[in-house]
């Protein structure tokens, strides 16, 4: 009796969160899996022309931007995640080994995390500006001609490079914070023991620090992969809703952008289902990679 009562109370306390989750997360989630199988769904009239198994997926795949979105997304994921994880690891190990000004630098490195992505994107767009940007000014000192990073007609490579620099920088803050807290929880005696046993610095890092930090590294790699697969705000921040440098629109389109793109024509028949299909494709890819990582990590992560 008593337990049941408590149960009821527990549900009551949980209900605000549950209701919000149900309305804004669970319903859309499952709804997407429903919408994707509707043929020629008219959103406004809520009419559809029977069901289809793969029809909406084929719309997505045949979308002229699909290939570019896949290429861009994979590029962002497989370049920005490893690079930023490595940089974050080195920065946090370095930060952890200094005593003076550690708090100050910790704050500095954490600033990107509390700064709006769009604002930072605009700042980076300016940093990469062809005529006034910091990068070209710097390169100018070495007599390098101004490079058109993100300006009108900028090449895909230049634009992608700029986007990656921005993405990596923006992702560092959170990773460094997690790594630092992980490093600070490693028992100092392991390092004393390693010192007494004359362990070279490199070996201390690879044989002690990295394995003991491996749960954190796994956590960061998985969340970063998921985050990178969802890249969108960074593109908008840097290139605006054109999703690419002027004169080369949509060259920086990503998978999430593809979803939003489809949603832009919500009025037109089947657009919603196409968006659902695109998001489910993205979801499947993300899930697949997460499973692979969890599987690989079983041997490499030491709890």
């Amino acid at each position: 009796m008593l337990e049941e009562k408590n149960n009821l109370k527990a549900w009551l306390y949980l209900s605000p969160a549950l209701v919000l989750l149900a309305v804004f997360t669970f319903y859309p989630l499952f709804n997407a899996f429903y919408l994707v199988f509707l043929k020629d769904f008219n959103y406004l009239l809520r009419e559809f022309d029977g069901y289809t198994l793969l029809g909406n997926f084929s719309y997505v795949v045949r979308n002229p931007n699909f290939k570019q979105a896949m290429i861009n997304t994979f590029f962002i994921v497989f370049v920005s995640v490893p690079v930023s994880v490595m940089i974050a690891l080195f920065v946090s190990v370095a930060l952890n080994s200094i005593k003076k000004l550690q708090g100050f630098f910790q704050t500095i490195y954490f600033l990107p995390y509390v700064t709006n992505a769009i604002a930072v994107g605009m700042a980076f767009a300016f940093i990469f500006h062809q005529d006034y940007g910091l990068i070209n000014t710097f390169l100018g000192w070495f007599n390098v001609n101004p490079i058109n990073w993100v300006g009108t007609g900028a090449s895909w490579g230049n634009a992608m490079f700029s986007l990656l620099v921005y993405t990596i920088w923006g992702g560092l803050a959170f990773k460094i914070m997690i790594f630092l807290s992980g490093l600070q929880s490693i028992d100092k005696q392991y390092y004393d023991a390693a010192r007494v046993d004359s362990t070279p610095r490199r070996r201390v890092f690879t044989k002690i620090t990295v394995p003991l930090l491996s749960p954190m590294i796994l956590y960061i790699v998985i969340t970063s992969f998921i985050g990178a697969f969802k890249a969108y705000a960074t593109v908008v921040g840097m290139f605006g809703v054109g999703l690419g440098p002027a004169g080369n629109p949509k060259s920086m389109i990503t998978m999430v952008a593809l979803v939003y793109d489809a949603l832009e024509h919500t009025g037109s028949i089947g657009a919603i289902s196409e968006a659902a299909a695109a998001s489910i494709i993205l979801f499947s890819i993300t899930l697949l990679f997460t499973i692979i990582q969890m599987w690989v990590s079983k041997k490499r992560v030491h709890y």
């Binding site: 028992d187 005696q189 007494v196 030491h302």
Partner: peptide, 19 residues
Amino acid sequence: APEDRGIGLVFQNYALYPH
């Protein structure tokens, strides 16, 4: 430095590398 002294040290909580 400790590594040049030729000592073996056993810590109170052993400090064995758990991994």
